[in-house]
Design a protein around this nucleic acid. Sequence first.
DNA 1: GGCTTGTTCTATTTGATATAGAATAATCTC
DNA 2: GAGATTATTCTATATCAAATAGAACAAGCC
Lengths: 118, 118
Amino acid sequence: MLVRIEPTSDAPLFEQIAASIRSDAAAGRLRAGDRLPTARDVAAALDVNLHTVLRAYQDLRDEGLVDMRRGRGAIITDAVVALADLRNEIDELVARSRHLGVSPELLTSLVKEIAHDR
Amino acid sequence: MLVRIEPTSDAPLFEQIAASIRSDAAAGRLRAGDRLPTARDVAAALDVNLHTVLRAYQDLRDEGLVDMRRGRGAIITDAVVALADLRNEIDELVARSRHLGVSPELLTSLVKEIAHDR
DNA sequence: GGCTTGTTCTATTTGATATAGAATAATCTC
DNA sequence: GAGATTATTCTATATCAAATAGAACAAGCC
């Protein structure tokens, strides 16, 4: 499994790392029970600090996508199944939003608000 | 029109202001051509800095939801129509996501990534 | 001309980001 | 059980972006 970051992107490193893994999960390239590479390995491979990778992993844990334990590493949870199910619907929503001329920023902001309300 | 902020929320003020207006727009409480209260009025009413309100307004402009010009103020664009159309679909996606046990954070992150990709 | 309104400039404070080192505790392997 | 592995926690620091703030400016309106 390969974690990718964009050196030109202005998004924080830890967000890029998390996004890379989220993306793989939603695309079906990661399955429940799969182990992520250890934070130390990723840090070495990308030449970033261990804490930066762990911050990304912890965000993924907060989202419920991975399970973490010391000595064992980070493991993809069952949430990945639901995620793959949702993926098509998200694609459709994004496509429809684009067709209506609604900007990605506006769509994203609204989904965020509605998802967190109540 | 009433702009609301949550003093207890840890979300930035400008985001709360933008969210309040976005929410009104998506719910149909704002229509194309409607004028937002002037930034100075909102700043006075909420007792926040003028720049904080303008930052919120400028974000809404970047999203395409309002049109701004000096001397005239901030006016809701046609994008509000598409937004009301999308609202139901977003509600459904959020409901389905919740039913599948996917956290709001994970859903939001994924929508953001998919909407901004390509 | 005078008022209103967003825009721009400069400045400061606060918080997030990223890095670093070291100690710790749970888990696995042999 | 011994040792290695791995995430966790703690302290610390340098850098950069976010957020707030005051004042002057320029476009639009009556």
